[in-house]
Write a protein that binds this DNA or RNA. Structure first.
Length: 704
DNA sequence: TCGTTCACGCACGTC
DNA sequence: GACGTACGTGAACGAA
């Protein structure tokens, strides 16, 4: 009960708002800025946290003639809602919002305003003095523009903000060092903190040589408002500062694009720059406690403090390290593809009797289904589907189809990988991808510019690209991946006896499944049976439908349904688990991983059947995929700090969901291999063993 | 009118 | 199920 009760001192709330909100009157000419601001704050707290009830106390004392009537007015409004503990309901929020409208002279609800004093200085003495400020925390924001560091906004109390432009003695490195030192004695908060690690290193990580224990949640070191907002709701498309300002503080901050457009920030007015950076620091300072409280309420403190925050530092380090790509060999690979692409292009034009743009699904559709009269399977919104699986079925009908498929495959390799990757090779001959921590709905990391998490693997020709990814001179790659981590998590979470037992046997899991499902001895499982069982195992993890499975295996929906029924007979715990997880997700409105990471699933309550079905698949998949992501993140942190503890030269450089790549010094190969396998396997203890395979190679092709 | 920019759909690479 | 990128297309926009 007490956990969910918000206790408010009414006098303080209104008094605080009275001084922070500019004076204004309601339509009757009575000053109401304090009431307005107070209710505004109350609503924002109630909305961003999970209080079940509200209790507001008042005292006679208020010490200010102008303040008193506003406190009384507020008391009147609150007492109309009930006495003592008032339940927090939708109705309560609505009536509070209506009260706001009544208070506003125009009837329009306005956002709160920045209660901020901004000082701009680059005077060395002043800056030195500023960094001596006594406080238990600070919020800052590095204003950067395509690599240029322009200035720093920083606040120690959430109302006085200083903007320090980079000039003269005040360099980016100087400010970074100041922050590093500051981090030794106070908690630091920023927005998208990974971007500031270029200049500053929090002492928590700089001095750390070991991972994080489950039991000590390291609550108060670094804090990233962006990551916090993401954990609370991972479904949003973006988390710009203005967005957080609006959601948590009801403040309006212009979007960066609106303020500066595409002009380089260096050209912008110092006043605009300083205001923008300072407001973000202000937002961080004031949103931090709200977000911390919400993370505590929702049980995501460990995720935030022990996992995501240290991870952001590690991702920065991996990005900075990068991976060497052999420019010339990549070029040669592309040229080789081009020869064959040209041949195919000619053959396709020849067969079609006309030159057209093969890359255009529209034109291709017209050629195949109208000019050549192949049997069409109209699928997409805008015309014929020419997707690979459709074309494969058409292949026997006309020789052009096979050529088109090959052409598609080769041009994909050429444009996305050969040419695409080449554009990202930096002067140090390395590709420095961006690992994004706040994109995915499930908790996975994503990689962009370029995406190094989808380098070809399936076909031999595609896989050859991996030969151009190499470690530095004399070094090798150590590549470690979890074996079927998601299926193992399913076994653990579903507590299915058969599946758990199967993993303890330590034999080929797909073969065991086939043997059980098709009732044949382990040794007599055919390769087709194994393939089918594997597809079902795979599909189950995705919460696949019978239709989806039928597509995967190119069998009828009826057959697919039979497979799934047989599967559920074999592993009844899995079926039970899936039903339970759908029900609980629906009841709670969100799914949860083993570590408490949440994903809202509003689709489960949709009236549209297909959307609801989608919601069910999400509910089945998100806890599995998300738990795998959590485990890998823990492993990365343990591996990273272990490398540091042992003062190894080897560096973690890539993560591909269930796989880690370390650029390994030749004399450290044995240590690193052992370390990787050990740390990854012990990142979590499940009811099934965790298995990690590690390979060494002199390029990524060989190491995989 | 022409060229550029943008959002969108499609196709396909990975785990 | 979860992503990111390349490409073609058509609409919107601005300059000429």
């Amino acid at each position: 009960m007490s956990e969910n009760l918000l206790i408010v001192n009414g006098n303080e709330l209104i008094s605080d708002a009275f001084y922070k909100t500019p004076a204004f009157t309601n339509s009757e000419g009575v000053f109401v800025n304090g009431v307005y601001g107070g209710i505004f704050k109350l609503i924002s707290i109630l909305k961003t946290s999970e209080y079940k009830a509200l209790s507001i106390s008042f005292s006679e004392e208020c010490g200010n003639e102008r303040l008193k009537p506003q406190i009384l007015k507020f008391k009147e409004i609150i007492e109309a809602k009930g006495q003592g503990e008032i339940p927090v309901t939708k109705e309560l929020l609505e009536s509070l919002e209506n009260a706001l409208k009544d208070l506003s002279p125009s009837g329009e609800v306005k956002g709160a305003s920045f209660d901020m004093t901004l000082k701009v200085t680059s005077d060395l003495n002043e800056v030195e003095a500023l960094f001596e400020t006594k406080s238990d925390r600070a919020a800052f924001y590095f204003l950067t523009d395509i690599g240029d560091f322009l200035g720093l906004g920083i606040s120690f109390d959430g109302s006085n903000v200083t903007y320090i432009p980079v000039e003269n003695f005040i360099t980016a490195d100087y400010l970074g060092k100041k922050l590093s030192i500051l981090s030794e004695r106070m908690s630091l908060c920023s927005f998208d903190i990974k971007e500031s690690y270029k200049y500053f290193e929090p002492s928590e990580f700089a001095n750390r040589t070991y991972g994080y224990k489950d039991e000590d949640v390291s609550g108060n070191k670094c804090f990233d408002v962006l990551i916090g907002a993401y954990l609370i709701n991972p479904l949003k498309n973006d988390y710009e500062p203005w967005d957080v300002a609006k959601e948590y503080l009801k403040l309006t901050l212009p979007k960066r694009a609106d303020l500066f457009g595409k002009e380089p920030l260096a050209n912008a007015d110092i006043k605009v720059l300083s205001e923008y950076a300072s407001k973000i620091a202000y937002i961080c300072f004031n949103a931090e406690p709200l977000i911390r409280a919400k993370l505590a309420k929702t049980g995501m403190e460990r995720l935030m403090y022990n996992i995501e925050m240290p991870l952001s530092y590690i991702l920065y380090s991996m990005e900075k390290e990068g991976i060497i790509v052999k420019r010339d060999e990549l070029k040669a690979y592309g040229d080789k593809l081009l020869v064959r692409i040209d041949e195919l292009e000619k053959a396709i034009y020849e067969a079609a009797g006309i030159e057209f743009n093969i890359n255009s699904p529209k034109q291709l559709g017209e050629i195949l289904f109208e000019k050549l009269g192949l049997p069409a399977e109209k699928k997409t919104k805008s015309g014929y589907s020419t997707a690979a699986d459709v074309l494969e079925k058409l292949a026997p009908e006309h020789k052009i189809v096979a050529d088109i498929l090959e052409y598609r495959g080769l041009t994909k390799l050429k444009s996305t990988y050969a040419d695409g990757l080449a554009a990202y090779i930096a002067d140090d001959n390395r590709i420095h991808t961006s690992f994004n921590q706040t994109i995915t709905a499930t908790g996975r990391i994503s990689s962009t510019e370029p995406n190094l998490q989808n380098i070809p693997m399936r076909t031999e020709l595609g896989r050859l690209i991996r030969k151009v990814f190499v470690p530095k001179d004399g070094y090798v790659f150590a590549d470690a991946d979890y074996s079927q981590i998601e299926l193992r998590i399913l076994a653990h979470m579903s507590e299915d006896k058969g599946l758990i037992e199967a993993y303890h046997e330590g034999k080929d899991i797909h073969r065991i499944t086939a043997s059980k499902v098709f009732h044949v001895p382990f040794e007599e499982v055919t390769s087709l049976q194994r393939r089918n069982a594997k597809a079902v195992n795979f599909g189950i993890v995705y919460g696949i439908s019978a239709f989806g499975l039928s597509q995967d295996l190119s069998i009828s929906a009826h057959e697919a349904k039979e497979y799934m029924e047989k599967y559920f007979e074999t592993y009844p715990g899995v079926k039970k688990y899936q039903e339970d997880v759908i029900a609980s997700t629906k009841a709670k409105g969100y799914s949860e991983t083993m570590f408490g990471r949440r994903r809202p699933v509003p689709e489960l309550k949709a009236s549209n059947f297909n959307l609801r079905q989608f919601g069910e698949r999400v509910a089945m998949n998100a806890p599995i995929q998300g738990t795998a992501a959590d485990i890998m993140k823990i492993a990365m942190i343990d591996v990273f700090f272990k490398l540091k503890e042992l003062s190894l030269k080897s560096k973690l450089i890539l993560q591909i969901h269930d796989e880690l790549v370390i650029e390994t010094a030749p004399d450290e190969v044995d240590t690193v291999t052992k370390l990787l396998v050990e740390e990854m396997e012990k990142a979590v203890t499940l009811s099934v063993p965790m298995e990690v395979d590690c390979h060494i190679g002199s390029d990524w092709y060989e190491a995989k």
